[in-house]
Write a protein that binds this DNA or RNA. Sequence first.
DNA 1: CTATTATTTTAGGCTTATCTAAAATAATAG
DNA 2: CTATTATTTTAGATAAGCCTAAAATAATAG
Lengths: 219, 219
Amino acid sequence: MHTFTEENYLKAIYKLEEQTGDTVINSDLAKALSIHSATVTDMLKKMSQKKLITYEKSKGFKLTGKGKKIAISIIRRHRLWEVFLVNNLGFGWDEVHDMAEQLEHVQSEDLVNRLDKYLGHPKADPHGDPIPNVNGEFAKSKAIPLSNLPVGKQGKFSGVIDHSSSFLSYLNKIEFALGDPIRVKSIEEYDNSYTLQLKNEKEIVVSSKFVNSILVIEI
Amino acid sequence: MHTFTEENYLKAIYKLEEQTGDTVINSDLAKALSIHSATVTDMLKKMSQKKLITYEKSKGFKLTGKGKKIAISIIRRHRLWEVFLVNNLGFGWDEVHDMAEQLEHVQSEDLVNRLDKYLGHPKADPHGDPIPNVNGEFAKSKAIPLSNLPVGKQGKFSGVIDHSSSFLSYLNKIEFALGDPIRVKSIEEYDNSYTLQLKNEKEIVVSSKFVNSILVIEI
DNA sequence: CTATTATTTTAGGCTTATCTAAAATAATAG
DNA sequence: CTATTATTTTAGATAAGCCTAAAATAATAG
């Protein structure tokens, strides 16, 4: 079907579009893929010919319907494999990214749909990211960054924005896991640090970076 | 680690060595991989430099210890994934080859060992092929081709030699599955066809090609 | 509006894995 | 032993993805 490289470009473009809500520019994509702009220019021409992206010189580009469909299917595969690795094989959520990056490229519609069924049609991966269904549709989420949760309100930890394994390991260390209750006790104006109340009345103080990296659902 | 291509060469060489019990020649490998001899010559030089094979111009070649170790680990991964696809995802044994060809290249020692554990350390894949353990050791097998099972003796279907999906589908059709009992009732001298007795006293007549494609254990 | 800075594109190269065609070498039949 | 056939190797190309360096273009500050 498509090469690994092409699939990685599609996925990266999709994520950049999602983040910025806008057309994507060459240099951002180059940075995201850790390659050089000149290489990106070349590849964009090819992908444009294949009608995977619309592309005008120096005006940014975006996925076509076709390109988007492929990107979403790759994300679906990635997240389903992550569920398998964590739920069935017992990996930590901070360990699965690289393996899922490989597994996502295995080509077989049948395989991914059977895996989905085997896993019980999960709605989210181990990081709380939504898993698109077989038609590429994402479940709507009411998640908001923890920084937007009003002080005193009860929330439930529903996902991470920062997927780095250093952040995930830190969450492991403080024993704060997906699904856990969370409440903002107070915000220190001086340095914008937050005092949070976790389960069992445990309190911790974290940075503003932290509260911007956590998604919660108000309950 | 190694490219897919290199891994595929190693696996193909391993299988050819196994079949012929001898050094492998360029043209056989080219045929096995459906590529041209000139390409093989090139690649052999590179693999020889990397000490994956020993290679002398026009004298055939064979895997080094290092090459063999990698080849066996690829076979291990392939067969474990096949078990997963059949036992857990419910694929037929005639459907899993292409998927396993992709999954076998996923790089992670940890993944394959956890998968092995998850599957209960299976000793054989869905076709009866032995799965090497974590140290690359194969369980010894007492399996013999059905053609070597003495007339009248009871055997147990323990593996296939022909892995083609046409053959596997045929076995599905006659409802002859791994583990089933089997007995040779008689051999027709005229055309070397065999009358076999399957489970529930069911009798079928098959060609000599058939009896050379089935492995059994005398019981 | 122009000078500086940022971004993109062009041009020329490299490596991997493949090909074809031709040359070289080895094996085999008579 | 030699002629024919089979096999392997060499030589020259190609496509995909990447690079660097330089040129072109666009954006922005003053």
